[in-house]
Design a protein around this nucleic acid. Sequence first.
DNA 1: TCTGGGGTCCTAGGACCC
DNA 2: TCTGGGGTCCTAGGACCC
Length: 426
Amino acid sequence: MSYTNNNKKNKIALIDCNSFYVSCERLFKPKINNKPVVVLSNNDGCVISRSTEAKIIGIKMGEPYFKVKELVKKNNVKIFSSNYALYGDISRRVMKTLRSFSDKIEIYSIDEAFIDLSHIEEKEVESYGKEIRERVLKWTGIPTSVGISNTKTLSKVANNIAKKKRAGVIYIKDNIDEYLKNFHVSDIWGVGKQLSKLYIKNGIDTAYKLKNISNTWVKKSTNVLGAKTVMELRGISCINLETQETKRKSCCVSRSFGKKIESLEKLQESITTHCLNAAEKVRNDNQITKSVTVFIRTSPFDKYRKYYSNSITIDLPVATSNSIELVKTAIDGLKKIYRYGFFYQKAGIILSRLKDSSDNDLNLLAPIMENKSQILMKAMDFTNAKYGRNAISIAQAGVNNSWKMRREHSSKIDTASFDSLPKISV
DNA sequence: TCTGGGGTCCTAGGACCC
DNA sequence: TCTGGGGTCCTAGGACCC
């Protein structure tokens, strides 16, 4: 079998925001523009975004905060707790700007999007990439890097190189192999820890070597995704641009606790809170769920205490998005998996097998029941949207929750609230 | 003392059926 | 006492992503 490369003309750009969360915080504090800055995960647990200066100091991605505290102090690194409401808002503005270039866009994550540039003249491609960067910076204040090539995987490679070289835009076309020879196999999109191990064990340590591996070997040693990656490195497009926005298939809300908890009562409070939030998200998308999973666990890092982790999934007789029903189901589940005598570190809920509320099962009772509860849920969502999340809750969620997460470095910026917008003096 | 959260897809293997 | 073969569907868990 021979492959004909009919994608030669495909051009895909990957636009990726530089140190996105850090860049968002900088929008409101220009003073920290050339200073080392990091943003921490929920609970101030790990480092999840670093400015270039922070990277140079040696702060690694994903590292627990307490391990880098010394480094932070010594180098006067500015620390922020994460503020997802803010990042989500800025992200929407970035994506809107990108849409002004093309409708053929796939929003891949909060800070990344693929755009189809196949219609752009060969000689114009690079300057077009520069224009994208400039417009996003001008309209939103967020710096980006742009990688362009024939396939999504190759544009990921190009983007990675653009970031490393701080080149702004990298367009990989004829000189692909030269780039791939210097590209480590573990940096390829779709090659994680396990695949890296396998490839390196077999002497494949660069993207160039992976590109030239035999089809039979990849198919035998990995799975279809592994094979697709190899094809994409060869410039043959296998992973399509998903321009259609699809609704989520599952919805998970979970948190680590600010401090470990032991009692069923406190676990019930947290599960109730998470369940209410998940149900609200699902209703927001006009979806209903058929399945509720509850999970709890102790800390996997605690060397001195026994580890316990468990989950339970309960199928509902009729799909629903009714908070009260879902909370009841979740609490029933929690009681089944709770064990006394453990110090719990995290709890969460997953609503799965989601579907559109319009295509509910043919259940004769459901329409009437749903109608009543829909009115109640709508009133609840409306009030919470107006007066803040959890303005209306249910008693089980508790008040003054001692298990709430830590956020000691919050910038407290909310772009929806006018007062916190930056003041400009002319 | 302190180690995030939210997704998707794939596969092996069990259950079940004829 | 002997005890096939092939198909589908479902699920838990793993791997990967940001």
